[in-house]
Amino acid sequence: MTISDPFAQALASDRAGFNARVAEAKHRYPSLDTAAFAIFLQSCTDDIVRAVADIAPDRVAAVAGEVFGIALELVGQALAGPGARTTLVDQMWQKLLPGYARLAAQHPAAVLGSLTNAVINISKVPTAKVDQWLREMAGLAQHADNLACLLRLGQIAAWRAGLAHFRVGAVAAADQLPAAVALAAVGAGPQENWSAVRDNLLADPWWSPDSARGRIRQAGIEIGQFTGFGGMFQVPPELRACTEGFLVKSADRYRFLIADVYGAVLHPAGAGEFEQLPPFPGAGSPLLDGSRLRLRDREIALDLPDKGLAATCNEHTVAITSPYTHAIRLFPLR
């Protein structure tokens, strides 16, 4: 595999400078594998440079320089290339970035760096759906006519890919986009009214303009699992409800659980927060009847023994825990 002519010419034009950057990176990252770096350059970064060469040939040198620097950082930290811990960054460079070539030509550092950081951050969340983020971002490329718009679209797609803690920020980001773009970004039809969609999104974390809502209402979301199987909890968790979500205790570890229609995320929390959390108003209402979860408008049969089964509620969500599972099941109350 070789790199395209435009990229090769850009590298050749400052061969000494690029070589010095590699030498410097090797000192900074002693484990930097130059063969892996070469493969990453050829297989993942060439597409974006070629795409830029097609639409803005005068920007190739600037983009190539930025690509080269970012590639060194990524391969040096084993975040991309053959030795990387995940292939998601490679996929993003191959599949997503060429679609944003025009913006990358104008703002190479911001576009390449931001999208790379985004995919790394999303992939750190075990429950996040990175594939979905990549797919949605590729589909939204036609709407991104400036850098700010691209960044907002990325934030909205990250929320929809399962980063539930970004819900409020993502809706605020959508609110700054043209209504048609905002509707497309949140998965609503073009005929819908953005203000109404926004109000619904803010009012109920389990509301969505697409099919996700119906699916979640019955199946719920499961999060946690046993550490021995790659999960998060050493022992079956204990929950306390708060307005934004739940505080979770498992052995001597504490976490904050936040969930909505697009997913659930666990964040670190402290013992003090858990111990000092006041009872949630209205919590403790009888929702369980044996192994059946009775909600206002529906009933869900749980495949768990009724012994020790617990339901913990906040305003929007009921969380089910049991001594027979390390997972937490979350259902919308309505």
Partner: peptide
């Protein structure tokens, strides 16, 4: 979301 190992403007 955009803060990470790669420096951006």
């Amino acid at each position: 979301l955009y803060r990470g190992p790669v420096q951006t403007d």
